[in-house]
Design a protein around this nucleic acid. Structure first.
Lengths: 343, 343
DNA sequence: CTGAAAGCGCTAACAA
DNA sequence: TTGTTAGCGCTTTCAG
């Protein structure tokens, strides 16, 4: 149960069990080629001593790495922390440790972080969060990941294309259509969009869905205000302010994620614009707090934790000939923040 | 820029630069004893080749580990994800990777997770989140951490006592007093507490602060309902339901964290109890969404990201003779969810 | 089935 | 300053 000074090593366990370190290794790593009797004794002794194998030595020696990497934009953002929760859950179940990096929404950090993960010999790298419309933005990362895969590493992405790897894809396009259809069905025509950077594929996809819904209703996205701002709560504030100032006739705002919607609601509250009476607000993601906002937010639910789980599960499977893609469902969740425009 | 099949190793860089691997090692790890000229050339070649040292080999060979571990209760919980954000921020700045584990609020998982972290040769372990009133609960963990420290590992905790290591301590006791004083000052006397498990030191501390405020006002905590439930949104719902059912005269509820407060607000909304007119609700933590709730939540602000930053910074300093403790400030944030009881 | 021995890629003595 | 060499703790051939 106790160990002092120098941590104990495999030799110590082997000696205590009266076997060779090879046998001890096999017993503990679960490889074939040890009698059940010895395996059992070794495991027992190891447990008694509180021995835990050095993961570094293990992976250096060619054993399987027991850790995976997760890269997100910002771990403090509920969207990503819920994804992370899914990843950690599966990781714990599989006996894997998870290294998490975040770029702080600074795309240039991505390369460094991915390299750090690879340097740590993770078995798999999971990248969550929107990619960029311009594929060149991620050339270096792509290159790095190719090398990683070349040496047996696995890669899975969540909500990102252009990378030629296994992917879990949230329903961004259909979701964009769904939420827009909802707002249209309420009777709104003077709709504005609070969008994150148009460079983000997530934003582009959600807008593409919106466009489909609009065309079906005889409207064109190009005729409606699409205000671009950071894909955050603060960006939502800025976008809402601009919509109010520059497009005063607007009756409904579709924010392209919940965080922006939260920011938008804050501005509307400050300015005394009643929601949904004077302005309907819709979000996207359904983060855990969406239902507790004032008013509760109408949004599109994405199964975030599940996204994370699926991605890790996918990354743990052996590589397939062609990249796997797995679409996840979405669901419209109508709450108090949207209503018919007052006539 | 590119590397195929086998990842490239230090030898490759050394050869390409025309120096010994020792020189290359020194140049890249920034140790003393290389001419600037060679150091520069090696670094240049390495960058060109896209070489990244194998962290496992490096740490196995006795070099400093470049990763730290963070253990939280549940990464999807904003309290912890904001702490994690602080840790990741400092980590990135210091060139450290961060392994995050969560127990899923299952204390029994803690030992396994801590061991996994140690097995990964992290330089430091940071444990965030309440400990347990009964010190025996964590005997094994404590033991494990002692061994870790004995072999040079560093440990810091956030909001947890009993562990004899460096600690960043949120103002739980003073904060508990502050929020209770606020509610008392509004004129409430029929106050109920929605508490997480009384086994959690955080809960005990916040209640202790409440007790101070109550005594000062001539009241006794023992005379007031303290409803125990899980320290989560859902627990908040359960606690609120019980308070409503069993203590109908209650005019104010102090939830011992924001998550519980959010749950409480949900139940009050469902049951049509107006807040704050019929019931005041206060929380604790000031998670990012607290200000966007309906009504906005009166709470005690704890600087979560800073907690994480401080803890990592502390853990990166050399061990001190006696454990460091660093208290962080709190601040009462009065919003719409509390008001005087209607007379 | 078992054990002895050869590394995994790197750093840290040690020599030169 | 440089280069040579001995391991770090483990897994994995390879003999026995």
């Amino acid at each position: 149960m106790a160990q002092q000074g120098g941590r104990l090593r495999l030799v110590d366990v082997a000696e205590a069990a009266g076997v060779s370190i090879a046998a001890a290794s096999r017993a503990l790593s679960g490889s074939k080629g040890v009698s059940d009797a010895i395996a059992a004794r070794v495991r027992e002794v190891a447990a008694e001593l509180g021995y835990v194998a050095d993961a570094h030595a293990r992976s250096l020696a060619g054993g399987a790495s027991t850790s995976v990497g997760l890269l997100v934009h910002e771990i403090g953002d509920p969207y990503f922390s819920e994804i992370a929760s899914g990843v950690l859950g599966v990781g714990a179940r599989e006996g894997l440790t998870v290294q998490i990096c975040h770029t702080g929404r600074e795309p240039d950090n991505e390369l460094v972080q991915v390299r750090a993960l690879i340097a740590n010999r993770v078995r798999a790298v999971i990248i969550a969060g929107s990619g960029f419309v311009d594929p060149r933005t991620q050339l270096a990362v792509k290159e790095e990941l190719r090398g990683f895969q070349g040496s047996g590493g696995r890669v899975a992405v969540i909500g990102r294309h252009h990378l030629g790897v296994d992917a879990v894809l949230p329903d961004n396009v259909p979701g964009g259509r769904t939420i827009t259809e909802h707002v249209l069905s309420l009777g709104h025509r003077r709709i504005a969009f609070a969008a994150g950077s148009l460079e983000l594929t997530t934003v582009a996809d959600r807008l593409a869905g919106a466009e489909q819904a609009l065309s079906a209703a005889g409207l064109a996205l190009a005729d409606l205000p699409v205000v671009e701002a950071p894909f955050t709560r603060d960006g939502g504030k800025r976008a809402m302010a601009r919509i109010l100032d520059e497009h005063p006739g607007t009756t409904a705002v579709i924010a392209l994620n919940d965080d922006m919607a939260i920011g938008a609601l804050a501005v509307l509250r400050e300015r005394g614009v009643p929601v949904p009476e004077r302005m309907s607000v819709a979000g996207f993601d359904d983060v855990a707090v969406a239902e507790h906002l004032a008013p509760a937010l109408t949004t599109v639910r994405l199964p975030m934790a599940e996204l994370g789980e699926q991605a890790l599960l996918m990354a743990l499977k052996p590589k397939s000939a062609r990249p796997r893609r797995r679409a996840t469902p979405h669901r419209l969740v109508v709450r108090g923040s949207t209503a018919a425009p007052r006539s």
